[in-house]
């Protein structure tokens, strides 16, 4: 039971991630255009949207692993579900922290009923309930089933929450970069690069977390 980072390829992966992140930050700071009136605040976009993308991606993985766990009853899927939900909620929290910071310079007031932010908030609240179920769901095997079911229910509600919030606040001037396609290419390419780096970072994080969970479960089993 060695350390996760004693294995050769894991060391390589974490090194690659560190280098790529540094390149990513330098790339964002230096060769992205300075949008006339937003100046530096616009550059938050390169971090804010990828972490939101990872949050929703990991909640999607929670749904998939929940579905697989319910059908195949294999503990492996539940570990993935737990790891994905933890990292997903971590990134959603990041989005909810950086959102208002980004909104103050651009729109003047911190919290704005913008569809994406509100969907993130609602999902974040649902996942607080998810971790409550994991803590108080009765004995472990049943708690895993309930958590998997909630993971599925939470994600199938994402499109509905997004749609209902979208129509609820059309009058608010929408997210600055809502039309991803028409962005000038020199904004788009660093954004795509940052998105890729964040996704790779996410894969390393989730593998590491699953390894630690297995260690934890393995340790309890022998007791």
């Amino acid at each position: 039971m060695t350390n996760y980072f004693q294995k050769k390829n894991n060391q390589w992966s974490i090194l690659v991630i560190i280098i790529l992140s540094i390149i990513n930050i330098l790339n964002i700071v230096y060769n992205t255009p300075m949008v006339p009136d937003q100046h530096w605040a616009q550059k938050i976009f390169y971090v804010h949207v990828p972490s939101a993308w990872i949050g929703f991606l990991s909640y999607f993985i929670v749904m998939i692993s929940g579905f697989m766990y319910l059908t195949s009853r294999d503990n492996k899927w539940d570990n993935i579900g737990l790891a994905a939900s933890e990292i997903g909620t971590f990134f959603m929290a990041l989005v909810l922290i950086t959102g208002p910071i980004w909104a103050t310079p651009i729109w003047g007031q911190p919290w704005v009923w913008e569809p994406r932010l509100v969907t993130t908030l609602i999902l974040f609240l649902i996942y607080i309930g998810y971790f409550m179920i994991r803590a108080y769901g009765g004995y472990i095997e049943r708690m895993k089933r309930n958590a998997a079911a909630l993971g599925i229910v939470a994600f199938i509600n994402v499109p509905i929450i997004f749609l209902s919030v979208q129509f609820w606040s059309p009058e608010i001037q929408s997210h600055p970069q809502v039309e991803m396609a028409e962005q000038p290419s020199e904004i788009l390419s660093p954004f795509i690069f940052s998105l890729i780096v964040f996704t790779m970072l996410y894969t390393v994080m989730i593998r590491y977390r699953v390894y630690v969970i297995n260690l934890n479960n393995g340790m309890n089993e022998d007791v």
């Binding site: 530096w40 971590f90 950086t98 910071i101």
Partner: peptide, 21 residues
């Protein structure tokens, strides 16, 4: 360099928390 403070704070929060994790 206006709004530079916001930019720095967001990046510190995001990458700081990831390293902390």
């Amino acid at each position: 360099y206006n709004f530079f403070g916001y930019f720095i704070s967001v990046y510190v929060i995001v990458f700081g928390l990831i390293i902390l994790w």
